[in-house]
Structures are given as C-alpha cells and as structure tokens.
C-alpha cells in the first residue's frame, strides 16, 4: 500500500466558525476496502484511456511513456472492477488482494 499524500495547507490564519461546516478536504483510505485488485497486462494495453475515464474513484492514470503504462493509485482503488469490464482489450483482470 502506498502512503497517502499529505500536504500541509499554506499557513493561513484559522478562525473559529459556529455550526456545522466541513472545512477540510480529505480522502478516506478506501483502498482498505479492496478484496480484489486490478492487474494489468501492459503488453496488451492500447493506452486508449477508457479505464481512466470510467474509474469512479478517478485513480487510474495512463502514462504512455512508461512500460507499466496504467498507473493505479491503490490508496483509494476500491477494487470495483469497472476497469476490467470497460477495457476494450480485456487486458485488466481482478486478482485476490494480498496484504
């Protein structure tokens, strides 16, 4: 599991506010949910970006110059498998998660 990115906010002054309000932009570690993970057969990938566009968590990135051209941020990937289903070349499959 990759470490979650944590970036400190630029040092603006904070003030008290009253009542219910969300003031932080955060991400839950939804990668923990996963019982299966997508595995890419990079050799068959056409870099068409379909998986990137359809990923509900927006954690897939196509890096055309890399050999491992489909980058998945496993901090958040829930293992839903939509990428495996939409891939026109069917080069992604779900395999059991091991931690």
């Amino acid at each position: 599991m990759e470490k979650q990115q944590e970036q400190p906010m630029k040092m603006l002054k904070k003030r008290n506010v009253l009542g219910p309000v969300a003031t932080d932009f955060t991400a839950a570690n939804t990668g923990n949910w996963r019982i299966e993970r997508p595995e890419v057969d990079y050799s068959r990938c056409s870099k068409c970006r379909t998986c990137e566009r359809y990923c509900p968590t927006n954690v897939i990135e196509i890096r055309p110059d890399d050999q491992e051209c489909v980058y998945i941020n496993f901090d958040y990937c829930k293992g839903c498998g939509i990428c495996t289903n939409v891939c026109p070349r069917q080069c992604i499959q779900l395999i059991p998660e091991v931690r």
Partner: peptide, 16 residues
C-alpha cells in the same frame, strides 16, 4: 478548505 489530501480534480479520491 484545508487541503489534507491531494486530488486530481474537485472531488476526493477516497469517498465512501
């Protein structure tokens, strides 16, 4: 917002 976690767009990646 205090940006605690980076995201590619306007929506958090880790949503329930």
């Amino acid at each position: 917002y205090d940006i605690k976690h980076e995201a590619k767009g306007l929506v958090t990646h880790g949503n329930s």
